[in-house]
Design a binder for these strands. Structure first.
Length: 314
DNA sequence: ACTATTTGACCGCT
DNA sequence: AGCGGTCAAATAGT
């Protein structure tokens, strides 16, 4: 089991727990603020999981999760000269999702190497690269810029995929978790982690939370997407109607189905989640992909990405 | 001493 | 020429 995958699953487990908490409070009128907070935490966690997933695919040496359809960045030297060929994707992170830190924790350590005032932008853009660039030649980079519209929102553009092994720390944590718990197998996974792929997927809102790669969508290269129809894409189903950080006021979460998970044994949820996540340790991403392709995996809480945008690479 | 950040200068692209 | 992105020396922090 790839360590990063474990981290992703743990992150997803956290998302699930938050979503469950949210559904518990959803219909209590006095808990609106709490719901809002939880929702933003969910967003942060989903985003983190996605970043990790990307990292996994990069460190596997295989096709990146969201790759350039051109596939022209295999050669590092070539890549440095052809910046445009790096896979690029953008996400927006709200301040609350950052949990008080300067930058959202995406599972990697970054080193700032520059800052630049950008024309017509209120805030400067900061440039980061992976701390392991020198030692391991990791070429992952990211740009961070505060949103003009909402200073509490960071627009983060990731470039390139991690080839470093900075997930090692996470691996240790995950492994200890794994050691503490019995694997409950895929039955647990199927019972508790059910992904609905029926998400309404049209990108109608411009206030997207997460923007994915900079290239035209190629289903053959995308680990999570087996169909050209985005509705069948795992990621499309995996964000949520929760909301973008800028539209947090108006969110109602049709999450009640996830209450199923807690029915009968409400206090065992977290245990179940962790078990669920760790029981995946024998699964590869390919396995997940297969499950998704065959529809075996089925979240019961209908998370959907309301906004999904492929950046133009150029 | 080592690592990270800051910041002005430089470079390549349009 | 202007802009965005990167480099690298200076500085700060541990």
């Amino acid at each position: 089991m790839e360590s990063g995958t474990i981290s992703v699953l743990n992150e997803l487990a956290q998302v699930y727990e938050l979503a469950r908490k949210l559904s518990d409070n959803l219909y209590q009128p006095l808990q609106i603020e709490l719901c809002r907070t939880i929702t933003e935490e969910i967003i942060g966690s989903v985003e983190k999981a996605i970043c990790m997933a990307k990292a996994i695919s990069g460190s596997n040496g295989g096709e990146p999760l969201f790759s350039n359809s051109g596939g022209e960045y295999g050669d590092n030297q070539q890549m440095s000269k052809k910046r445009k060929m790096l896979p690029t994707w953008t996400s927006q992170v709200s301040a609350s999702a950052m949990r008080g830190t300067e930058l959202p924790d995406d599972g990697y350590t970054w080193r700032k190497y520059g800052q630049k005032d950008i024309l017509n932008a209120k805030h400067p853009r900061a440039y980061y690269r992976c701390t392991h660039r020198k030692k391991q030649g990791c070429l992952a980079m990211k740009q961070v810029q505060r949103s003009d519209d909402n200073p509490l929102v960071l627009e983060i553009t990731y470039r390139g995929t991690h080839t470093c092994s900075s997930m090692e720390q996470l691996q240790e944590t995950d492994q200890s978790l794994f050691d503490q718990r019995n694997s409950r197998g895929l039955v647990d996974l199927q019972n508790s982690l059910r992904l609905k792929t029926e998400g309404n997927f049209a990108a109608k809102d411009s206030t997207s939370l997460i923007f994915f790669p900079s290239t035209p969508h190629n289903p053959d290269e995308n680990l999570f997407c087996s169909s050209p129809n985005l509705e069948s894409c795992f990621l499309s189903s995996f964000s949520s109607p929760f909301m973008s950080p800028t539209t947090s006021e108006s969110n109602c979460l049709p999450l009640s189905p996830c209450q199923k998970l807690s029915q009968g044994n409400p206090k065992a949820d977290l245990t179940g989640i962790i078990s669920m996540a760790t029981s995946m340790t024998n699964l590869t991403m390919t396995d997940m992909d297969l499950m998704l392709r065959t529809g075996e995996m089925d979240f019961d809480f209908p998370i959907e990405i309301s906004n999904f945008e492929w950046n133009s690479a150029a």
